[in-house]
Write a protein that binds this DNA or RNA. Structure first.
Lengths: 139, 139
DNA sequence: TTAATATTCTACTAATTCTATGGATTAAAT
DNA sequence: ATTTAATCCATAGAATTAGTAGAATATTAA
């Protein structure tokens, strides 16, 4: 399951997209609109900024805004940033790979691994093709 | 990611399958063979038993054994039992559904939900078609 | 009927991760 | 200067995960 933090992140991004034309948006505006604890949201937005998805401006008239086109922000990217690996086993993760102590035999022949690779690939097909833009399609 | 407990569960089931012909298998034998903490494994096997996957016998000559054919034990079933929902959001889970506080609008139109339904369906295609029998295919 | 064997049950503890908050600091605008 | 708003730092509480200890119960076999 996605963490609460990750769900907040998606909602915050959705909010920024909805109000894109209005210029920088305040943390507190997003928090109110999407019912996210203000301070928690602060940390989330900062993380999204450091990863290059958002820009921000301090002081009066400041706030957060999207740096990329909605089509360029994939679900997979956000999930990897906030929650980490999408794969079900570390030894099968593309972005967070770790040699798997669980593979008692070698990884090449580990059968659990083989199935998990398939799961990963099918999940990625969806998560890497869907972007923020899909959040606005109300159909 | 799967919990350690869940990985242990798969390895334990694999072990039971490999030694099926030898009659009931001791917890401690499985623990040693698969490098699982004995006491932790105990709890896992009991859970698998209560869910109907395993049988057991106490006393001398006792131990655990599979109750079902390998083809009848799906990955999805084990994951749901040990780790819970496979879906990424509660409001999208088939077996652990909860009304989603995150859907600020109604569920029918929540766009985050729509994407997550697709992810769930693709994952399930794999996890419900793969069974313990696939763990023995060393190809 | 007793001793040995092995699962089952109850009740913890430790460690880690997740969720959330408080307050001081820095940057920008007027 | 004053106000506004993001940034940084530190921490605290709750929940979940991982693992352990020991007593109770069931079975076998002598």
């Amino acid at each position: 399951m996605l963490s609460k933090k990750n769900r907040y992140a998606f909602h915050a991004l959705e909010d920024l997209l909805e109000h894109r034309s209005e210029g920088p948006r305040l943390i507190s505006e997003i928090a109110t609109a999407k019912k996210i604890p203000r301070k928690f949201l602060e940390a989330i937005l900062l993380e999204l900024k450091k990863a290059g998805f958002l820009g921000s401006k301090m002081g009066k008239g400041g706030g957060y805004y999207l740096l990329k086109q909605a089509e360029q922000i994939r679900f997979a990217d956000i999930i990897r940033l906030i929650d980490g690996p999408i794969a079900l086993l570390p030894c099968v993760s593309l972005n967070y790979y770790e040699t798997c102590e669980d593979c008692l035999e070698d990884e090449a022949t580990c059968s659990l691994r083989k199935v998990m690779i398939q799961v990963r690939d099918e999940s990625l097909k969806v998560l890497e093709s869907k972007t923020l833009a899909d959040l606005l399609k109300k159909t």
